[in-house]
């Protein structure tokens, strides 16, 4: 098709839509710089007091720390279980394994509110409510499918003959896994770990149900701030979160660019 008038207008429309997707979040920046004690747009005067409060408040700092611990543990656990499972499914490759794969993707697509109900229901008798272990386990179950997807995508381009060759040359299963399979699916494993981290770091619905006082993650504190709708510290936290997102995005872009030529060789 020739790029006609329609195509041109559509492209302009698409750019407008894409800007609509990204720009609203930026309003957090001016709001966070307001010198007032309540949420407002700054009128000519700017102040960093809300950032100062964010980084000196015990509550916010402990939430940053707790979210970090939970997201890192969840990412590690989900990456371990998800990668092993993806390799297993890739090895088996039968009708049953495809069924299992479809089943394991369910936590990703089942509405979060139902997942939250399920965890809440089971965590009560198990005594896992409001504990690190409870949150880490729940987030891991939600995040492992992500790892499964990214690692499976990497495995799809891996030549199974290499595995055979390694075994024929006398390597054990474990050596083959460590020296042959893992190095070639590394991009998928890293991507999965990153996605799992973000999922946990940003998770709110399940967290609202299964945490209360002793574990108070960053999204939970932001949720509270948003509901109360008065304290501008929330805006400062939002700015920090946007900055973290952009940094993570840049890192992953650089990593994937570095990996792309390596794969082409």
């Amino acid at each position: 098709m020739k790029p006609g008038l329609f195509s041109f207008f559509n492209r302009v429309g698409a750019w407008v839509l894409l800007l609509f997707l990204v720009t609203p979040a930026l309003i957090a920046i001016p709001v966070s710089l307001t010198p007032k004690r309540f949420l407002s747009m700054p009128q000519g005067e700017y102040s960093l007091r809300h950032f100062e409060k964010l980084f000196t408040s015990e509550e916010w700092l402990s939430s940053f720390f707790q979210s970090g611990v939970i997201a890192l543990s969840c990412s590690a656990l989900a990456t371990l279980l998800g990668t092993l499972c993806a390799i297993g499914l890739w090895r088996v490759s039968s009708r049953y394994s495809e069924l299992v794969r479809a089943f394991l993707l369910l936590p990703l697509i089942i509405p979060q509110i139902i997942s939250a109900m399920a965890f809440y229901r089971l965590w009560i008798p198990l005594g896992l409510l409001d504990s690190y272990a409870g949150l880490i386990l729940a987030h891991t179950i939600l995040a492992a499918p992500m790892v499964l997807i990214t690692v499976s995508a990497s495995l799809a381009t891996f030549d199974p003959k290499l595995e055979q060759a390694s075994k024929n040359l006398g390597a054990s299963n474990w050596t083959t896994m460590r020296r042959v399979i893992l190095p070639s699916i590394r991009p998928g494993v890293f991507a999965g770990a990153l996605f799992a981290f973000i999922l946990s770091w940003d998770e709110i619905v399940v967290t609202l149900f299964i945490s209360k006082y002793s574990v108070y993650t960053l999204p939970r504190r932001m949720w509270n701030g948003i509901r109360e709708n008065t304290d501008p510290t929330v805006a400062a936290a939002a700015v920090i979160l946007i900055a973290i997102t952009l940094i993570a995005f840049a890192v992953s872009a650089i990593l994937s660019r570095r990996n792309a030529p390596a794969q082409a060789e």
């Binding site: 990204v22 930026l26 957090a28 709110i204 929330v234 979160l241 952009l246 993570a248």
Partner: peptide, 24 residues
């Protein structure tokens, strides 16, 4: 460029975005 914008918006926390709409 388009893909970058799309993915960045995909990655920005749902809470940050909801907060932004509240302000807007």
């Amino acid at each position: 460029y388009m893909l970058t914008l799309l993915l960045v918006s995909f990655w920005i926390s749902i809470l940050v975005r909801t907060f932004a709409w509240l302000m807007l």
